[in-house]
Design a protein around this nucleic acid. Structure first.
Lengths: 245, 245
DNA sequence: TCATCGAGCTTGTCTGACAAGTAGATAACG
DNA sequence: CGTTATCTACTTGTCAGACAAGCTCGATGA
């Protein structure tokens, strides 16, 4: 099934974009250098403009090309540095996990504050639904990690800031393991799940009541609690606790 | 010149790809799920097939969609897994520029607070050096954007959080244009450069004196000022101003 | 029952056209 | 002569319609 993937003839736009990319890299074109026009690329590669445009569209998505209507296409400022990545290996290492948690704390607190200011009824309901799901998981001893995820995603969405939402979603994915110790059987028994849920509820109530500062503080408490439950608390971490006091 | 970036109307294909992406994530479509056909997407978004194809091409490049000729388009195995990206094109749309600034504000304020707590003498000196460079640029009417960049990078480094530093460096790259209106000839004449520099100095002094809250507040003021200088202040933005009051 | 074929769908590619934005030359004006 | 306004040529962005290539599935026939 997947084998067919490898014998499928490559699409023209892929070929062109690959050639263009290596062309840029090999010639070491400086950022800002203008690329040939679409028309001349069509002639050079012997393809239609649609293909060239799709190839360029891909390079744009990869961040190594920018285009301006009426001007042309240019080598982007930082080819290859177009994205931010927290790679999985570093996430587990002690200090870096703490750093990431700290970064996440800043953003998550900000999201909670904004959510308290801007939440709509629908978004509030979505947050509460996730909260209820976790309540159920708590009473049945079941799996609550998914609802936990949904809870944080819903808060990010309620912040009304799409970029913030995307960034937190990204961090959440990288940190998906981090909820296991809380919602595992052990976590239920040791009361970690109940503890986390209490923190969740405080965040929700503050957002519901529109108390931005309280929401931020509750989020901070929750992240601190998460760090404790994960056993993370190196030299760096404690420093952020007193923020706002 | 590059400042026009912020008022450029977003391209249709960007809008479509963005909507498609959020659509996929919000519905939580499982990997392998088939997407609507290009034709129906055209009707749904009211655009031509070329636009839909470019949007999909972009999602393919981002790795969250795969297509098979004769079959259709499908949600990829790991949608948006590997990295986080604020791409240059989406930065242009007004609301999104505001969202990014808002996100940046959270992180930059946090960095300033941490820097005030953790700065070493060497890091402090590095910040001051960048500040002096900007002073020189100010008095000679010269170019200060590079030193401006160095200033913020130095603060991020002084936070002692590597991940935070990397993330701010990434955002700084994406936002490199944003300092032009401040340090351009016009910016010098209109006093924007002097204004920014005064804000810089307040941040530096708070960090030097170890006043974390003041450093955070000064950073917030600076980001608000930057937004003002860029002419960004849509519905979203003002809400973050009163944080901490 | 089973192999074959074809209609009808999908994406991939091509073509030609027009709209929108920019830079540079040209012309008009003080 | 210098400055401003306009116009032209060129670029990317978008549209429309067509055909090619690949896939699914049911009708057809042995």
């Amino acid at each position: 099934m997947l084998a067919t993937k490898f014998q499928r003839p490559p699409r023209l736009s892929d070929t062109v974009s690959r050639q263009l990319e290596s062309w840029i890299r090999e010639l070491g074109l400086a950022p800002g250098t203008q690329l040939p026009t679409e028309k001349s690329l069509c002639e050079r590669f012997g393809v239609s403009r649609a293909v060239v445009r799709e190839a360029i569209s891909r390079l744009k998505a990869e961040g190594c090309v920018e285009t301006r209507q009426g001007l042309g296409a240019f080598v982007a400022a930082n080819p290859g540095e177009g994205s931010f990545r927290l790679d999985g290996d570093t996430v587990s290492a002690g200090d870096e996990a703490a750093d990431i948690l700290e970064l996440r704390c800043m953003v998550e607190c900000g999201a909670a504050e904004l959510a308290a200011r801007r939440r709509s009824q629908a978004e509030l309901a979505r947050i509460e639904r996730a909260l209820d799901d976790m309540d159920r998981a708590l009473s049945t001893g079941g799996e609550g990690a998914l609802a936990d995820d949904a809870f944080h995603v819903a808060i990010a969405a309620a912040s009304g800031n799409r970029q913030l939402e995307r960034f937190l979603a990204y961090m959440g994915r990288q940190f998906s393991d981090s909820r296991l110790p809380t919602w595992s059987e052990d976590g239920h028994r040791a009361g970690r799940a109940a503890e986390a849920q209490a923190e969740h509820r405080r965040i929700f109530e503050a957002i519901r009541d529109g108390r931005a500062d309280a929401a931020g503080a509750a989020a901070r408490e929750h992240l601190l609690g998460a760090a404790r439950r994960l056993g993370i608390s190196p030299r760096h971490w404690p420093a952020i606790a007193p923020v706002g006091q």
